[in-house]
Design a protein around this nucleic acid. Structure first.
Lengths: 181, 181
DNA sequence: AGATACATGTAACCTGTTACATGATTAA
DNA sequence: TTAATCATGTAACAGGTTACATGTATCT
């Protein structure tokens, strides 16, 4: 299990949100994190506003302080940002604990998107590797009944982890079959 | 979904490890995080050593710079630390993303521990609430076929999340039945 | 004796959280 | 007009990661 550097995903989520909606204010983006995105990723406006500022500076997004309405600023995706988003979506998934998979899938709109297929395949491999690792761990640690009773909690969660991975694999395989057919 | 302050768990994990092994050096504790605990929680020696220092100062653990052997220091659990560990294990689980459940279960040694039953029950309620929430979300967002195809990715992960919760609930119920019987 | 690995420790950095702050708009 | 809320922003803090540093065994 190689050590993988933690990736920053917040900017890409914001880009994804902007792609889906095309013209938004900061607080509208914030609202997304309280609702749908919030199921998978949490943040607050204290992170969003500085991030928007940075992305404007980097020309990933454009800002329009338009209209007479309040002090609101409207943001929209720029080509560079679109490019960054595509990069993030297609770059390899890593077996991290903070699950990037649902996050990326969230931004796939089209069922026939090649990126979707790619994501499912990558995720499948990750879970296969994990399952192999876990079952191996299980046999080396708990082949004797005595070990199970001596460290019951450890045994339980390992068993649970294996079941979870199995379930994930089942789902991924079903999905891939559906897309193929 | 109430907002819950993030809890610091590292010290309690270390206490748990020390409870299981009773006499350990810093690097031995570090090794645990590379092996079994590493499945559920990651950290490095840069966090462990200062944490050990703090816990020695707080009298949660004792330190012995014994023997002629190296510069090694041996740590062991003190009553105050034992107490802190028990507190952590029994305090209510929160529906956080970073899963405390497997972490706490890991440290349960005895199958008949009342804490195990408590943890399973708490986790059951959390997952029930989450499942209810997710299914509700599903019906409000995707009751029409058109919505599914327009935002296929979103639909997919919501479906997956529901399946995952269902699977978790099944497992938890099975376990609770086994403990009862 | 020199090189390598081990055990411990510290410092700089990055990111996310909490709390505070300001103007502008709506409600009473 | 005052109070409450909304939209935006900043500052202080806390926690974890990466990189650096030091001394001590072990190996050749």
């Amino acid at each position: 299990m190689a050590i993988v550097p933690k990736k920053r995903v917040l900017p890409y989520i914001i880009l994804g949100i902007l792609k889906l909606n095309s013209q938004m204010t900061g607080s509208e983006i914030d609202a997304e994190f309280q609702h749908e995105i919030g199921e998978f990723w949490q943040t607050t406006h204290s992170q969003i506003y500085p991030e928007l500022k940075r992305m404007v500076a980097d020309q990933w997004i454009g800002q329009e302080t338009s209209s007479q309405d309040r002090k609101q600023k409207w943001y929209h995706l720029l080509p560079a940002g679109e490019h960054q988003l595509q990069n993030w979506l297609t770059e390899p998934l890593t077996p991290s604990t903070d699950d990037e998979f649902p996050l990326k899938v969230f931004f796939i709109q089209d069922q026939s998107s090649p990126i979707l297929y790619q994501l499912l395949t990558q995720e499948l491999q990750i879970h296969q590797a994990k399952l192999t690792h876990l079952t191996q761990r299980m046999t080396t640690l708990f082949d004797h009944q005595t070990c199970q009773t001596a460290n019951f909690g450890h045994y339980l969660i390992l068993q649970r982890a294996i079941e979870r991975e199995t379930n994930s694999l089942q789902w991924l395989e079903t999905m891939l079959k559906q897309l193929d057919g």
